[in-house]
Design a protein around this nucleic acid. Sequence first.
DNA 1: GCTCTAGCATAACGATCGTTATGTTGAAAC
DNA 2: GTTTCAACATAACGATCGTTATGCTAGAGC
Lengths: 203, 203
Amino acid sequence: MSRDTASRPARERLLDAAGELFYESGIAATGVDAVLARARVSPATLYAHFSGKDGLVAADLERRFRQWQEIWDEVLDERTDPVDRLLSVFDAVVRYRAVEGSRRGCAFLAAATELPPGHPGQQWLAADSRLLTERLHDLAEAAGVGDPTGIADGLLALYDGALARLARQAATPGLDTGDPLHRARRMAADWLAGRVGPARPSG
Amino acid sequence: MSRDTASRPARERLLDAAGELFYESGIAATGVDAVLARARVSPATLYAHFSGKDGLVAADLERRFRQWQEIWDEVLDERTDPVDRLLSVFDAVVRYRAVEGSRRGCAFLAAATELPPGHPGQQWLAADSRLLTERLHDLAEAAGVGDPTGIADGLLALYDGALARLARQAATPGLDTGDPLHRARRMAADWLAGRVGPARPSG
DNA sequence: GCTCTAGCATAACGATCGTTATGTTGAAAC
DNA sequence: GTTTCAACATAACGATCGTTATGCTAGAGC
């Protein structure tokens, strides 16, 4: 059995296990032992591939960021209408959650509340925030709206709200009042209808 | 010196210390020792007043919930216009944060991402969610809108978004693009303008 | 065949976790 | 003044934290 390098590389098994456990149980609450057990990997292997738990957390956030950006790119390539491209952020997060199997809130939001100020994972939280604001701004500009920054901020607010409510719904099941993501998308569409291009039907 | 029962009671000192540390550094990341040191209290005293760390966390969330409800009541009593009363949730959270000295996101949102499913503090997260949805629904109904549930959900989305962005801004300083709370309030006002009562100026 | 080396599991490290047992102190009861 | 009792600090508990030292094992070079 031993030396199963033939299976998935140890580094990927570690990232998979860490991703699931950090997301499911929280970063601080997940011990290194739990990650090692799920990945079927020894401590020495972990510290050969990563600088430690902090490095593993940062690598997990990096992978999440890259996959999120990739999926958003993918969805964006399927849209041509400027308003649809603005709203693509909601479709992308729906697809990301489907691919990732997410049953809770946003991993970046959770990490933002958990990681201490100097943590190496913080750079990927900043990267995510920057991607959201800059891309939404560019898409708003391309849509020819009068106030691209205002539009981008508004969409970001609805995006943040949907993911935050998902996190809170996961904590208190039974109070669900529908899907926050679809509701946010609908609100964003209505809100944009009065601000960009010709009047759109706000049904 | 010793036996300083003459000063603030040990229970309150514990709640103050726990509130600050849990909010500042996270619940899981804050050790009981840190709370004890800040409160200048011995372990035996903590376990005489609370069932343990979990009980202390629950008591902190209970106190936060009661104060938040009290402040919202207070703000609500100052408003008579139905739309102002709907928007009072944003004014209340601004006042709550001023009173509490909050420099990060929402403590309930953070707790929702940190606490495990069966934690005794979960009931106060549920209470907060219920207060928000039910009260917003009632206020929307009182405002005579056509779809009170839809209005309440929309305002909740903007509320959630503002507090989530506050949390993420605290994690990555330097990317601030203004105050999410005031922006959310302005968006909500604009959004409500087209849906309730006579047309309001959307400045 | 033997040696060398990289990569791995076993075991254990000190530190800190949340919690509890053991004394000690100060004020009220009589 | 003595007793009594609740509240307190000191010290230590076992468990687990993140991390590292030690030994085994499989393949490359000769």
